[in-house]
């Protein structure tokens, strides 16, 4: 498939994934709000989890609903947004480097790799994969510096990169530090930190939505800039 078609497919699939996750967030939250309303209207029930043995009544579930909505649900879907972005950047770079591998011409590889490869495409794929694996451990700002170096698309702009960097740092706090802000988060956030060391990181709905919108915008900007460049 031509690169322009591959990038179009990647863009559309990524945007669709982001919409699916946001719909899941929104509908799940609404379902919990309906539960709270049902409880407020005086309905009684108990729920027993046969696996854990826990039993909750309507009052407890209503309180848990608030924690689920503002905590676990927001956190899980936020992390999913970031995962989709990471996957998009990785896939985009893979497509671009596979089509234009000259920037990798200085890379070294074991002669065994050449011997084992069925053709040149296999060798290129191996080098691209290795390059992206190394890049994956670098900061998100480095990913976009790399993107600009190889593709010269002029996006995302620095403001977007700084915001994405804070979003990624927030994700790392949720995944690696149980949601408690540390100095690593502050250091990674490029002056955009929303909290200080020791705070509990929270995801207000406007921030959750802004993050989703920013990631969508960056996916569109990068894809469309590449498509425009390839059309020339």
């Amino acid at each position: 498939m031509p690169l322009i078609d591959e990038i179009t497919r990647l863009r559309d699939e990524t945007l669709s994934s982001l919409d699916t996750i946001h719909n899941y967030y929104f509908h799940t939250k609404s379902a919990w709000r309906i539960v709270q309303q049902v409880v407020r209207k005086g309905n009684k029930f108990t729920i027993r989890n046969r696996a854990t043995g826990s039993i909750v009544d309507e009052t407890e579930l209503s309180g848990l609903a608030q924690a689920y909505v503002t905590g676990l649900l927001a956190s899980a879907t936020f992390q999913h947004f970031v995962s989709v972005l990471e996957r998009f950047v990785s896939d985009f770079l893979s497509l671009w480097l596979t089509e234009y591998p000259n920037s990798l011409s200085g890379k070294e590889l074991k002669f065994k790799t050449v011997l084992d490869a069925t053709d040149k495409n296999k060798i290129v794929a191996t080098v691209v994969e290795k390059e992206l694996l190394e890049l994956a451990y670098q900061r998100i700002s480095d990913w976009f510096l790399y993107l600009e170096k190889i593709a010269q698309l002029g996006c995302p702009i620095s403001d977007q990169i700084e915001r994405l960097t804070e979003i990624k740092a927030s994700r790392d706090v949720l995944v690696h530090n149980n949601g408690i802000v540390n100095s690593v988060y502050v250091g990674k956030s490029m002056g955009r930190a929303r909290f200080v060391d020791g705070d509990k990181l929270v995801l207000p709905e406007d921030y959750h939505r802004d993050s989703w919108e920013l990631i969508k915008q960056v996916v569109k900007d990068v894809s469309n800039a590449a498509i425009k460049k390839l059309e020339k």
Partner: peptide
């Protein structure tokens, strides 16, 4: 605080939403 974006109507009653005050 922050306000939920969803507005829920149960059994056709007026829409409600939630204002979250946080910890």
């Amino acid at each position: 605080y922050w306000v939920d974006e969803d507005a829920i109507s149960l059994n056709g009653e007026p829409e409600i939403t939630v204002i979250n005050l946080g910890h």
